[in-house]
């Protein structure tokens, strides 16, 4: 079966110009501009099969939003091709946008001044949703997102969490086969985040909706996506399962020991277990780090508890955030699919 979204060799350049300072500079800008080209997306290729939920991560300015904007037909690619749900997003935009839903965490897609329900009614008309479908879907949205209470409030008066719930619901009102989410949980509290994740998961299971979401919160990825794409400086650095990324980059484990007394802590700080580095984390606390290949966590713990008096143990493993930070800072090409 062909992929639902097929991106090949996608490139986007932005043209800017050097701004000269001062009034003389402003006048010079007006007549003689030095144009500069920045490559926001640099030869990216990937495929997404139907019903898959894919996480798309990268530091600020990596090219995530630019990719999403090309996939949704807002921006015209500089070169390369996109076929999504059988359409070429930019060229066939009006027909294509009928078949997708889009959520931008930073900006609402609803009409600012009118009550939420009026926005929904407008969308119902724009997407030709039947009254029966409209009612059924609104009921379903209310069950998980609890939006009923503020349907009559103008969008501008909603809190961020309330607004996001409405935005997600609005993007799904026409039950599109593809949903794009650009930082859907940004700035939300933990309860609102969980509501939205739970809702997206249910929609994916029930309707087989394909989703591509960008996020800075890796918990979103861990809850929703088995597949992850990492982008930085416009280049795709990794494309594969989350577990695979962890396996490749999760080089080190750490265990934190609370010792009975100072003397024990001093001894552990100067441990002679090979390849293990110790650091003092408190008067009675020592953290041991060791490579995953050479030591198992259990073995390290066994060796420590048989030599010194330990009162408490905390296993710290490397967090997914650390893993991703490592990719961003070293900018290593982990895997190119």
């Amino acid at each position: 079966m062909p992929a639902l979204i097929d991106v090949a060799d996608l490139v986007k350049d932005f043209r800017g110009f050097k701004r000269q300072p001062g009034i003389a500079g402003a006048i010079r800008n007006l007549f003689a501009r030095e144009y500069t080209y920045t490559r926001a997306v640099d030869h990216i290729s990937f495929q997404i099969p139907s019903s898959e939920m894919v996480g798309y991560i990268g530091p600020n300015g990596a090219g995530k939003s630019t990719t999403i904007k090309m996939l949704t037909g807002i921006l015209m690619p500089t070169s390369g091709s996109i076929v999504s749900n059988g359409f070429e997003p930019f060229g066939q935009r009006t027909r294509y946008t009928r078949t997708i839903g889009v959520v931008f965490g930073q900006r609402t897609q609803l009409w600012w001044d009118i009550p939420v329900v009026e926005s929904f009614r407008l969308l119902q008309n724009i997407y030709d949703v039947s009254d029966a479908d409209y009612k059924a879907r609104m009921k379903r949205f209310d069950e998980v997102l609890e939006i009923e209470r503020y349907l009559n409030t103008p969008v501008r008066k909603l809190s961020l969490g309330e607004r996001m719930r409405c935005d997600v619901a609005a993007a799904l009102l026409h039950n599109p086969p593809i949903l794009f989410l650009d930082e859907p949980t940004i700035g939300l509290d933990i309860v609102a985040k969980e509501h939205i994740r739970e809702f997206l998961k249910q929609i994916n299971q029930q309707y087989g909706t394909t989703m591509l979401l960008t996020t800075h919160d890796l918990a979103d990825i861990e809850h929703l996506c088995r597949r992850l794409m990492v982008i930085d400086r416009g280049k795709l650095l990794f494309d594969g399962p989350l577990a695979e990324l962890k396996r490749r980059l999760w080089r080190e484990n750490a265990v934190k020991f609370d010792l009975k007394d100072r003397e024990a802590a001093d001894r552990l700080e100067h441990t002679d277990i090979p390849f293990v580095t110790a650091e003092r984390a408190g008067e009675l606390t020592v953290r041991l780090r060791f490579p995953r290949e050479t030591h198992s966590t259990a073995e390290v713990i066994r060796r420590v508890v048989t030599t010194v008096d330990v009162s408490d143990i905390a296993i710290e493993g490397q967090s997914i955030d650390d893993v991703v930070k490592e990719i961003y800072t070293t900018n290593t090409l982990v895997d190119k699919v």
Binding site: K69, T72, G73, I74, Y96, Q109, I126, Y127
Partner: peptide, 13 residues
């Protein structure tokens, strides 16, 4: 302000 994004996302001219 970037409001034009929203305009382009709707299946209307």
């Amino acid at each position: 302000q970037g409001k034009f994004d929203r305009v382009l996302l709707r299946p209307v001219n």
